[in-house]
Design a protein around this nucleic acid. Structure first.
Lengths: 223, 223
DNA sequence: CGATAAGCGGAGGCGAAACCTCCACTCTTT
DNA sequence: AAAGAGTGGAGGTTTCGCCTCCGCTTATCG
């Protein structure tokens, strides 16, 4: 009772327990990345090769696990924005930011969901957004001062663009996981104040047959 | 038993029953448009001012009701595409199509969901898509022949663009229901083979404060 | 008008899904 | 080898949406 000082855990985990904890985190990362946050902790346990009870002993609830897991990923997003500010060319900075963030989001279903749906970890997400916002503002305004980007673009447009790309990526996940780059290119061509020609669209569009698959694919979601 | 000829209903509905049927359809339209397909038939019944039992007597299940309801709306989408073909200017035709379809989708949550999530009415939806696809192809190719649109745009890009716009609209529904037009304009500016200037973005972007609301808003979804 | 059967309401049955708990048993640590 | 930390996974609990059922109401028709 008076054993532990302050609020901190004193005794380290038993060796096997620590190993299980790692396994759980790894499994959670895999499962949430691939299937999104609606994966159950039973799924995580199975993937980790442990019982559900074990998961719940380490993480009081799903929220805690998700929170622990996405801390780094959110930070990575912020870091990416900061790096964009340091790019020598302001236009390249902005475009690279859009592209890198897009890559992260479209590759990690859990990450999109934590950002797009206010279901888990909203404290951490708000913090990340708060750190992000001023940086993005500077990235956009810098490019505008250079006359590289249309003057009416606003910083809040950036997250919207990312969400739109995520949506596109979700549909094409099974057939053309990279189509989102097509749409990014289209949008980027729209961001220029003026341009003589188009940037070739990377990756092909879906064929009508692939389209059928794409449309069928998103069903689990939303029930 | 041998009473009714063929498979058809013989006796007309009792007058009050017919009235209730109408009420149910109207209520269903309102509820699904506003809250999406995850609204329950209990919600529909409440809105219609009848009991759930009454709803189920007229429509064997939710699927049947949804199906009956969206038949027209899907047709309207197809018609819009056909009208685009008849526009004197091929570029205007395409842009108007994108804009009209966007307006329909962003205004009707049920309609987006029936198209975006393979949960209900997929037969009817596939049929609608089948009718739509060749028309959209012609709309796109016509504009390309005129040199009005970038040559690498493909017909399957059109539904993707619509879905992206719907996503944007969903977030801003509570604060700036028309922001999707911003993103449409951005994309349309990206569709031009070349252009000297930008089309002014209609409607303002979200303010950072509105952004917070937008992010919180989409939570029911996806659970 | 009264008989008949069509129609009605809405409580509640049912099943699916997720989250999390519990406890008899096992394994690490000292 | 004792102590107590850790484990697994069946199942309790809750939530929620779909749909059924049946005692009562009401339109219709002779």
């Amino acid at each position: 009772m008076a054993q532990q000082a302050g609020e901190h855990r004193v005794r380290p985990l038993r060796r096997d327990a620590e190993m299980n904890r790692q396994r759980i985190l790894r499994a959670a990362s895999e499962v949430f990345t691939a299937h999104g946050l609606q994966a159950t902790l039973d799924d995580v346990a199975r993937q980790a090769g442990v019982g559900v009870g074990t998961v719940y002993r380490r993480f009081p609830d799903k929220e805690a696990l998700v929170d622990a897991l996405f801390e780094d990923k959110l930070q990575a997003l912020v870091t990416e924005a900061e790096r964009a500010l340091e790019a020598p060319d302001s236009w390249t900075g902005l475009v690279t930011l859009l592209e890198r963030a897009g890559a992260m989001l479209t590759r990690d279903r859990g990450l999109v969901e934590i950002l797009m749906y206010a279901t888990y970890g909203q404290d951490r997400v708000s913090q990340a957004r708060a750190r992000m916002q001023p940086v993005v503002t500077r990235v956009v305004e810098r490019a505008q001062r250079d006359g590289k980007v249309r003057a009416d673009l606003r910083p809040t447009d950036v997250p919207f663009i990312e969400f739109m790309l995520s949506t596109a990526a979700e549909y094409a996940a099974q057939t053309q996981p990279e189509v989102w780059r097509r749409y990014l290119t289209l949008i980027v061509d729209g961001l220029r104040p003026s341009r003589a020609e188009t940037t070739p669209l990377p990756t092909g569009a879906l064929t009508p047959e692939e389209m059928v698959i794409a449309m069928r694919s998103v069903s689990q979601r939303q029930r």
